[in-house]
C-alpha cells in the first residue's frame, strides 16, 4: 500500500512538472503563431487592402495551436454585423478563445491593444497599430523563449524531485 502511495505521489509530481513545462512551451509556440498571424494581416492590409474580415480569415488559415480560432472567432463576429464596436468584439473573441490558449495575462494585455483602433481610419493607422502589437508580442516571445530554454529541464526535474522529497518525508 505504501509503495502504491509513493508511486502515485511520484507520478503525479512528475506529471505536474512536465505539464507546467508543456504549458510554457505551448505559450512560446502560440506567441510565434500570433506573430505570424499579425504579419499576415499586416501584409494583406498593406499590399492588397484586404478587408479586415478576409485578412483575419487568411491569418486563421495560416496559423494553428488555437491561435487560428482567435482570428476566426473575430472574423465571425465581424461578419455577423450585430455590433459596431470592434474593440468589444475583439475582447469577446479573446475571451472565447482563452480555453484554447496558454497565454499569460501580460500577453492578453498586449493582444487587447489591437482592438483599440482596428478597422478605423486609414491604412497607415492600421499598419502602425499592427506594428505596435507585433513589436510587443516579439518582446514577450523572446523573453518567454529564453525563460523556457533556461527553465525547461528545471521544471521537469523539479517535478521528479518534489515527488521524491514528499515520498522520503512520508516514509
Amino acid at each position: 500500500m505504501q509503495l502504491v502511495g509513493i508511486g502515485l505521489i511520484m507520478s503525479s509530481c512528475t506529471l505536474a512538472g512536465f505539464a507546467y513545462d508543456g504549458y510554457e512551451g505551448k505559450r512560446v509556440k502560440q506567441l510565434e503563431q500570433l506573430l505570424m498571424g499579425f504579419e499576415v494581416i499586416r501584409a494583406e492590409i498593406d499590399y492588397q487592402l484586404t478587408p479586415l474580415g478576409e485578412a483575419l480569415e487568411r491569418a486563421s488559415e495560416m496559423t494553428n495551436d488555437g491561435v487560428n480560432e482567435l482570428f476566426a472567432n473575430f472574423a465571425e463576429k465581424l461578419a455577423q454585423n450585430n455590433d459596431i464596436d470592434t474593440k468589444r468584439m475583439w475582447y469577446c473573441a479573446i475571451d472565447d478563445s482563452k480555453r484554447k490558449l496558454s497565454l499569460k495575462d501580460e500577453d492578453y494585455k498586449v493582444l487587447e491593444t489591437f482592438g483599440t483602433t482596428v478597422g478605423m481610419l486609414d491604412k497607415e493607422m492600421q499598419k502602425k497599430n499592427i506594428d505596435w502589437v507585433l513589436s510587443r508580442l516579439a518582446q514577450k516571445k523572446d523573453v518567454a523563449q529564453a525563460m523556457y530554454e533556461r527553465k525547461s529541464k528545471l521544471y521537469r526535474g523539479l517535478g521528479v524531485l518534489v515527488g521524491l522529497s514528499i515520498s522520503i518525508v512520508l516514509i
Binding site: T50, L52, G53, N81, I84, G119, L121, D122
Partner: peptide
C-alpha cells in the same frame, strides 16, 4: 458605414 466597409474603411478610401 462600418457594415458597408466590413469594418475596413482603409479599404474604401
Amino acid at each position: 458605414l462600418k457594415f458597408v466597409s466590413g469594418f475596413s474603411l482603409y479599404a474604401l478610401e
